[in-house]
Amino acid sequence: MQINGTVLFVNAAAAAGLIISLYKNRKKTGKALQIALKGTLKMTPALIMLLILIGLLMGFFKPEVISKLLGNQSGFIGIALASVAGAILMIPSLIAFPLTASLVHSGASIAVAAAFITTLTMIGFVTLTVEIKALGKRLTFLRNGISFIIALAIALLMGILL
């Protein structure tokens, strides 16, 4: 539901922008489309890679498997495990939150849950290739590396406070 709204919004904005742009300046619009096409082509191999990786991850690490793996984990090892799992996996947030809730119910600590959710949303192991293509290696590794540390910090803080 959330995705459909987004799709509608993005495409409507693109269509409106395109029409206005065409009306204002044909040549510039052509250039814009050229940039769009070039950008898409540049990203294509990375996107295909993403497609494959997501299929494999979802095929081999089903929610039940993750649940079992992280179920009654706590302590630092649990947090570390959850962070790594969250960084590697890519789960839509609508599934991720109920999954995390079920982790907590089956005995995982709050810190583990927080670590999992935070790395899950912030770090994209499978999207690394796409990110490198767009932003370069240095920025990508800095962002993902530090995000990982941040996730650990948030998890520990929440474990202490909640």
Partner: peptide
């Protein structure tokens, strides 16, 4: 696995062209 890839592919096709066009317009 195939289901996940497929639904991701659909998402990609639905959203990527629009995003790239917006990016192109933005750049220009």
């Amino acid at each position: 696995a195939l289901n996940a890839s497929w639904s991701f592919f659909i998402e990609l096709v639905e959203i990527l062209p629009g995003v790239m066009i917006l990016m192109g317009l933005f750049t220009v």
